[in-house]
Design a protein around this nucleic acid. Sequence first.
RNA 1: GCGGUAGUGGUGUAGAGGCAGCACAAAGGCUUCCCAAGCCUUUAACCCGGGUUCGAGUCCCGGCUACCGCACCA
Length: 582
Amino acid sequence: MEHEEYRENPVDDLKERVLELAKRRGFLWPSYEIYGGVAGLWDYGPLGTLLKQKVENAWREIFVVGEGALPIDTPTISVEEVFLASGHLSNFVDLIVECVDCHHTLRADHVVNEYLRGRGMAADLCEPDIAEVCVPSREKTQELIDFYGIACPDCGGPLGKVHDFNLMFATHIGPGTQRKGYLRPETAQGIFSDFPKLLRFFRDRLPFGVAQIGKSFRNEISPRQGVIRLREFTQAEIEVFVNPDKKSIHPRFDEVADVEIAILSKDFVGRATVKAACDRGIIAHQYLAYYVARSQEFFLRVGVHESQLRFRQHLPDEMAHYAVDCWDAEGLTQHGWIELAGIADRTDYDLKQHERQSGLQMTVFVPYAKPKAVERTVVRPKMNFLGPKYKNKAKQVADYLATISDPSGPFIFEGQEIDPLGYVIETTTQSVLGDFITPHVIEPSFGIDRTVYTILEHAYDEDTIDGERRIVLRLPHSLAPVEVAVFPLVKALNEKAVEVFQLLRREGFLVEYDESGTIGRRYRRQDEIGTPCAVTVDHETLENGTVTVRDRDTTKQVRRSIASLAVTLREMLMGGFAMSPS
RNA sequence: GCGGUAGUGGUGUAGAGGCAGCACAAAGGCUUCCCAAGCCUUUAACCCGGGUUCGAGUCCCGGCUACCGCACCA
């Protein structure tokens, strides 16, 4: 998909202007700036924090309230076992080698594979690990570099030692014989770790969804692009546990079937309904398609422009080590198309891995519609024979017999054939009620910080009013960090205006009061931060108890009584209010 | 990590060895006013650390941060 015309009202240097506004008005600040700042760490200022909270609330409304994905809150510090299981310890690593001469840092495994391929050899650096995932080993990479004397592909200089760079922050838990800990690189593992308890909580039935909003950490080698690539960032994730045999049908698919999305995949580029995308096999199954549609609903609600939102299918080689199909929601910004969310089918990878690591069963009992009759042949010990014969070893013999699945015999215990009088071979018909299955996981995972940034960029606008440039942040009304501004037209009206201000606070609005300077300046100040409503107390207020209410986007005003003000404002914030004169 | 460019009040900038200027913003006042008007007053800056020099915002070295390119980004 080409980068289409970006906005109706193109603004030069949009990136700089948005960031300038964000820093100046308290949305985003570089962290620890008094000490020089740190790349990849950013603060939310007061307005940014309110905006972010409202974005998170919109997400909760759709996914927690609307989808019933109940939230949990797990620690950001996790124990080592979690990442042994998840594969992050071995996979969330880049093998890095530095050229001694030109100091380029290179991906060591890429260098080796390229070298081997260039000489017609199989590039076989990958070794399947415990999870059957291809991971190049540091030792083997080093070995091959040494053996072939592989040099820097850029300058031909000698290469240094290969070392791991794990993108997780490591730490220690407690003093003394410390337990290794890591800051989580995704919130998902906290959910997987709680699976047995969650399953019981949801009363042993599929499907169910679990949500978590929280911080995750990745020690990026070189974060760039401001707030787009952070070392500490907020994720909003849902893990939907589903029966793998039922992924093709989502019970509420009808609700979203006609939602149209922009698709970029290897087989199809263009707009289509999620139903069409599903029916034509572009999206693997209804569960993924369903969450793609819900994700779009979320992004549109928080003010991402529809024409600058698309869903891109991962190519097989960029898919995470655990996923089989993955769709990124991407927003078009001045940084190009950036990933705002990933909607992945993680299959049973994580639960299987935690099963192996923890030794606990992570399965769900799924009853059949009708119990199945299954014929089974078993070897049943006869204790009244075995007892007298084997005395204190009788129990061991019986246990051994009970494990036998092939009833053809003979059965040997301690080198001796067991007397056939000691058991009977029985064929019985058993009624099997169901299967133990490992659920598959559908994971919509949202990057909240990137979403907030994209919202700011998409909302940023400049108007020209009477030849003056006016910056307006056209945020969705419900998202504005300041909902209502209250002004006295002149200072003599301060007291009355403060009264209105306090009244609106009591009504639950986020209100700002401003009596400084001229009225026009105060309107502009609020336009910049996206305040949708401005209430002005003027001379008429004292006569008849009415005030003017100004709309941010049109700058049009209507007059309303103070008594009906809260209702009017609430309507405006919900977006359902027509600014018709009254 | 590499290379290039840059870092001066809150923001945008000028100054290129000798008292750090301007504009906008912000605070207070006049104006009593419905869209950044005007006037007065005020607050406020040389990224950090070394070095050279009588003297460094300016020159040199190192670091940090930002932007661009490379590399990286399950």
